[in-house]
Simulated assay, not measured.
Amino acid sequence: MPSNYTPRLRLEMQAAGENINTWGEPRLNNVIARLDYAIAGRTVLALGSAATYVLVASNGDDEARGAILDITSLTTPCVITVPSSPKQYLIRNQGSAPATFTTGAGPTVVVSSGSVVGLFCDGAGVSELGFGGYGLKDYVDRAVLGATGSLPATLGNAGKVLGCDGVSWGPRTLSMSDIADIGAYTAQRNAFALVSSLIF
């Protein structure tokens, strides 16, 4: 039986008695180099204005094997297709537009400009690593401020504070009722200062 390749990382497996005197070099060294790349390798994706991109996945050296996918120079939204096999990726988007990761079916993940995201492919779709069913950004936006579903926009909310009325979180302007007890507080501080001055 000839050698074949593993289904996930596409590493060459040798058949018994095959490649005599060549199994160590180059074949074993190729497998070690590809394992090294799968664990810590960085694939640079200079995508420019590409609307779609399919990661190269072959039995030799390929883009999809890398542990880190580093997107550079992306200027328009792009859909990037990863192989439909279980794998974990670390994605960094240094471009100026979002990248959507997909297997071509199932769930997708959008990696916005400037983000670093852990991505998990289960062979059917992709998911962002996160907490409580949310990706990290969604966890911050929705789980921490769950009642509103998202953080309030900064535009139009200058000078406001983030407050909770017991039902939901939201931006609001401070009012006199927020400092209604300032008179009692001031009287207490004045009395304390007076007593302190008499004692000392």
Rank of each mutant, 00 (worst) to 15 (best):
S177P: 01
L35K: 05
R42S: 12
E25V: 14
I179D: 00
G106M: 03
Q94W: 11
D61G: 09
V31G: 01
R27F: 05
E128F: 03
F120D: 04
L47E: 04
I32Q: 12
A16K: 08
G66A: 15
G66E: 01
V111K: 05
T6M: 05
Y37T: 10
L47Y: 02
S58V: 11
S58M: 06
P152Y: 06
V195N: 09
N21E: 12
T186H: 00
L145I: 11
R189E: 00
I20S: 09
V44L: 10
I199V: 15
R27V: 11
Y5T: 02
R42W: 09
P107D: 13
Q188N: 12
A64N: 01
A191T: 07
V126Y: 00
S115M: 13
A99M: 04
T108L: 05
A51M: 06
N30K: 09
P77Y: 11
P107N: 14
G146L: 12
G156I: 09
D138S: 13
A143D: 07
C78L: 08
P171M: 15
V82T: 04
A57S: 14
I39W: 13
S96R: 08
T52S: 05
S85V: 15
S196I: 02
G118N: 08
A46S: 14
A143N: 09
D61C: 07
N190G: 01
L45K: 05
R142Q: 15
R65K: 03
T75N: 06
A143W: 13
A180N: 04
C121D: 05
L129F: 11
I32A: 12
I199E: 11
Y139R: 05
V126R: 01
L74D: 02
N30D: 14
G163F: 02
I80K: 07
P2K: 09
D138R: 12
N19L: 14
C121G: 06
Y185I: 12
D165E: 03
L136V: 14
N59V: 11
L9C: 00
S150R: 15
E63G: 00
L45E: 00
A105Y: 04
S96W: 03
R65D: 02
G132I: 09
F131Q: 06
T102C: 01
A97K: 06
S58F: 07
G48Y: 05
V56D: 10
A143V: 08
T186R: 03
D62K: 04
P83A: 07
A147R: 07
Y89I: 04
G166H: 01
E128A: 15
G123L: 04
A193P: 04
D36I: 07
